[in-house]
């Protein structure tokens, strides 16, 4: 089960995320839970593996907004960087991004 402490240890800027949720801890945790279960993450990975940069951009952009609002920094930071490459439709090797995102997402999932 997600807790504030676990998220703090994970690296989320809990203070910022909570403020945005008007300091409602239950609401914040519910939103993080929802974000962790968002299928957009899987869509992003699938689109990147298939080299579909436009779809990948849309998914990354959406995730960036959600992770940013909840201040889940370990996911927000790599996804922000990725969004900019994808926005420019940069042809490059995205495997490193995929690895980082996958490992950070797994860590988050283990907290649930």
């Amino acid at each position: 089960m997600l807790t504030i402490e676990k998220l703090k240890d994970y690296g989320a800027d809990v203070e910022e995320g909570l403020k945005r949720c008007v300091n409602n801890q239950a609401f914040y945790l519910k939103m993080v839970e929802k974000a962790a279960g968002d299928p957009t993450f899987e869509k992003l990975l699938a689109a990147m593996n298939a080299g579909q940069l436009e779809e990948a951009f849309e998914a990354a952009h959406a995730l960036k907004g959600v992770y940013g609002n909840l201040a889940i920094k370990p996911l927000y930071e790599p996804v922000s960087e990725l969004t900019e490459f994808l926005r420019a439709r940069t042809q490059m090797d995205y495997s490193e991004f995929i690895t980082v995102l996958k490992s950070q997402k797994e860590k988050l999932d283990q907290l649930r």
């Binding site: 945005r20 949720c21 959600v66 609002n69 909840l70």
Partner: peptide, 13 residues
Amino acid sequence: DDEEINRMILGNI
């Protein structure tokens, strides 16, 4: 907003 989480955070505010 297409993202439910964003809608909810804003709505909560």
